[in-house]
């Protein structure tokens, strides 16, 4: 298991290298000159040239790439062209915001999706099954930006239950320690703020959770249906075990592996796909960070931002692979 993990981590190196190269080249394919954008429309040729030189953008691309790579190896993600701050220093608040949102969204998606899938399989062809699966179909097909806007219109504007956007009450800001506000408010014992942060989280988290929830529900259902036909489930029932435990213990454990695979992939998509949700709900996360960087042609921020998300994505899927072995004794990684 340990050697397998180490091997997988080593195998990450070429993946991340290739990824960094692709991102690096693609950014440079976007039309627009960072120096021009920083200095504005009225900048002189000389000023632009000087700034380009100062930013190192006059070098051939492979020299730029290897300089960047060298910095990466020392753990330096580079410096933002726009703010002149080290990305290492400024990225965390954005990353924390995205992680908090994605984690909550995934929690909702897993809890509701898995249970809906299980109950649909248990009571196959019941009204619950039909309604859940129709909702799941709608869930995967619904455009997220539209759902987000509808949520805001209905729950914030019509009912006035929840705030429309942002991460916290502007007049009562959270003092950040870890930048994960749910934790920060708890550490400081500010329960009023905790509730407030939670209220801000609900709408974007549900918007973000919709697609993964629907996919998880469908996969869980089909996987459970398959398992519940098997001989060992008949054995379990013949032992006189309650149907609830037959379903939630004997069947679920066998059905969970394809569900985990989907959860891993969806978590990755969530991190990257949060851009739309973050924009609609003015959530100061990675999506916004990279989006703004793209507008400003802030090359280092785009590169490093995408690389960080990719790294998290790969790590989550490695974790899921290791989880397989913990669940199924027949899976043995060498």
């Amino acid at each position: 298991m340990l050697t397998y993990t180490v091997r997988r981590l080593i195998a990450l190196i070429p993946v991340l290298l290739g990824l960094s190269l692709i991102v690096f080249l693609m950014i440079r394919a976007i039309p627009g000159d960072p120096a021009q954008i920083i200095l504005g429309q009225l900048a002189t040729e000389e000023a632009i040239e000087a700034l380009t030189k100062q930013l190192g953008l006059d070098q051939p691309w492979y020299i730029q790439y290897f300089t960047y790579l060298g910095d990466l190896l020392t753990g330096d993600l580079g410096e933002s062209i726009k703010t002149n701050t080290a990305i290492n220093q400024e990225i965390w608040p954005y990353l924390a915001a995205t992680l908090e949102l994605s984690f909550c969204a995934m929690l909702i998606a897993i809890f509701i999706g898995v249970n809906a899938g299980i109950i649909s399989a248990w009571f196959q062809h019941s009204w619950f099954d039909y309604i859940a699966m129709i909702l799941a179909l709608i869930g995967v097909s619904i455009p997220i930006f539209w759902l987000g806007l509808m949520e805001q219109w209905f729950f914030s504007i019509q009912l006035d239950w929840l705030p429309t956007s942002g991460r916290e009450e502007v007049r009562n800001p959270v003092t950040s320690i870890t930048n994960i506000y749910l934790i920060d408010t708890l550490i400081q014992g500010r329960f009023d703020q905790f509730v407030d942060v939670l209220r801000h989280l609900i709408l974007p988290a549900f918007a973000l959770a919709t697609i993964p929830m629907a996919i998880i529900a469908r996969i869980t259902r089909s996987s459970m249906l398959e398992v519940m036909k098997s001989d060992y489930i008949r054995t379990a029932r013949a032992k006189g075990i309650r149907m609830f435990w037959v379903v939630y213990k004997h069947s679920l454990k066998n059905a969970v592996i394809p569900v985990l695979t989907v959860i891993g992939l969806q978590t990755g998509l969530l991190l990257g796909g949060a851009i739309l949700t973050e924009t609609i709900f003015s959530w100061p996360g990675m999506g916004r960070y990279i989006y703004d960087a793209i507008s400003a042609r802030d090359y280092p921020v785009i590169q490093s931002g995408i690389l960080v998300i990719a790294f998290i994505f790969v790590m989550i899927n490695l974790f899921i692979d290791l989880l397989y072995a913990a669940i199924d004794p027949r899976i043995n990684y060498r």
């Binding site: 098997s230 001989d231 060992y232 008949r234 054995t235 004997h250 454990k253 066998n254 199924d328 004794p329």
Partner: peptide, 12 residues
């Protein structure tokens, strides 16, 4: 049952 190979739950 007939099938001892599949009649026991593989994960317990």
């Amino acid at each position: 049952f007939q099938e001892p190979m599949t009649s026991l739950n593989p994960l317990f």
